Structure formats: structure tokens, C-alpha cells
Simulated assay, not measured.
Amino acid sequence: MQTHDFFTRIVALNCMGPNMETGSGERNAEPPKKVYICGICDSAHDSHYKAENCCPTEIYTEYECQVCRVSYGALKDAEACCTGKPVIQPKQCPVCMGGADSYQDAADCCLHTHPTMTALGRERVANDVERGTSWPDAIRAHAFH
């Protein structure tokens, strides 16, 4: 027999691990990554060699924010990019980790089998997550709605 504790535990574990996609504004512990930019097509590469072989031209380096993937010429600019921005949860089911087009779709994906949560509860979870609440906190708050 399923209980609401199962959902609370699985969502908490999924949100802690590397399974969750990073949403825009979420700050992780990884420092900015140095990328090599092809001078002709402006595509980013992990190594100088790959950028050099992309298009035969001059290669330059930039620093890419690991959260929003915007690149900057200076390391300090990349480090300051997403610092202090609110955390935005990804639009993906917190149980099966499947991608969704909206927070409502993500909440309805697997939480419809939650033994104590109604459609109204899933709607409230989706609204809370869209406003910046984490998936585990939103589910905990509306598990009996």
C-alpha cells in the first residue's frame, strides 16, 4: 500500500541529486567552466583542439556560467552571473524526472497516483513551484489537499 511518505522521500532524493536539471537562476557549487569559442561560427567547445578543428580560424576563450550557460570574457563576470538570483525549479516531474511543458504537467505526471493528494493539491503544488518553492516543500505543504 502506498503512503504519502513514499512520494515525500522520492521527491526529496531526486531534488538533492544530479538528476534534476538546473533551472535558470539556480546556483550550484560548480565554478564557471572555461570554454573555447570558434572564431567563425561562435560555437563553444570543451577543448582548444575541438575549437581549432571546428573552423580554421582564430580561437578565443571565455568563461561560461554553469547555471544559465551565458559566457563572459572575464572570470569574475561569470562568477557573479547567477549569484543572488532566486532559485527556479525545473519543469520536470519530481518523481520520474520526465520533462514537462509546464509546472502543472510536471505535477500531474506521477503525483496523480499520490494517495492523499487531489487535483486541487497538484494545482497548488504547481503554483508554489512556479513561484520558487522547491518541489519537496510544495508537496509536503499540499500532501493532504
Results as ranks from 00 to 15, higher is better:
Met1Leu: 10
Met1Ile: 12
Phe7Thr: 09
Arg9Gly: 11
Arg9Pro: 00
Arg9Glu: 15
Ile10Gly: 09
Val11Leu: 11
Val11Cys: 10
Asn14Gln: 03
Gly17Gln: 08
Asn19Gly: 13
Met20Trp: 12
Glu21Lys: 12
Glu21Met: 11
Thr22Asp: 11
Thr22Asn: 10
Glu26Phe: 13
Arg27Tyr: 12
Arg27Asn: 14
Asn28Ile: 12
Asn28Arg: 13
Pro32Asn: 06
Pro32Gln: 12
Val35Tyr: 04
Ile37Gln: 03
Cys38Asn: 12
Cys38Tyr: 08
Cys38Ser: 07
Cys41Gly: 06
Asp42Tyr: 09
Asp42Gly: 06
Ser43Gln: 14
Asp46Cys: 07
Ser47Leu: 08
Ser47Thr: 15
Ser47Cys: 06
His48Trp: 07
Tyr49Leu: 11
Lys50Cys: 07
Ala51Gln: 02
Glu52Asn: 05
Cys54Tyr: 05
Glu58Cys: 06
Tyr63His: 06
Tyr63Phe: 15
Cys65Val: 06
Cys65Lys: 02
Gln66Phe: 07
Cys68Pro: 07
Val70Trp: 03
Ser71Asn: 13
Ser71Leu: 03
Tyr72Glu: 02
Ala74Asp: 12
Asp77Pro: 07
Ala80Arg: 09
Ala80Ser: 10
Cys81Trp: 01
Cys82Tyr: 01
Lys85Gln: 07
Pro86Gln: 04
Ile88Glu: 07
Ile88Lys: 03
Pro90Lys: 00
Cys93Ala: 03
Cys93Ile: 11
Cys93Asp: 08
Val95Ser: 08
Gly98Gln: 06
Gly98Ser: 14
Gly99Phe: 11
Gln104Leu: 11
Gln104Thr: 04
Gln104Phe: 06
Ala107Arg: 02
Asp108Lys: 10
Asp108Phe: 05
Thr113Pro: 00
Thr113Asp: 10
His114Glu: 08
Thr116Val: 00
Met117Trp: 02
Met117Tyr: 02
Met117Arg: 00
Ala119Leu: 09
Gly121Pro: 01
Arg122Tyr: 01
Arg122Glu: 01
Arg122Val: 00
Val125Cys: 09
Ala126Asp: 00
Asn127Glu: 14
Asp128Cys: 04
Val129Gly: 01
Arg131Glu: 13
Ser134Trp: 04
Trp135Phe: 02
Trp135Asn: 01
Asp137Tyr: 01
Ala138Thr: 00
Ala141Pro: 03
His142Tyr: 09
Ala143Val: 10
Phe144Pro: 01
Phe144Gln: 07
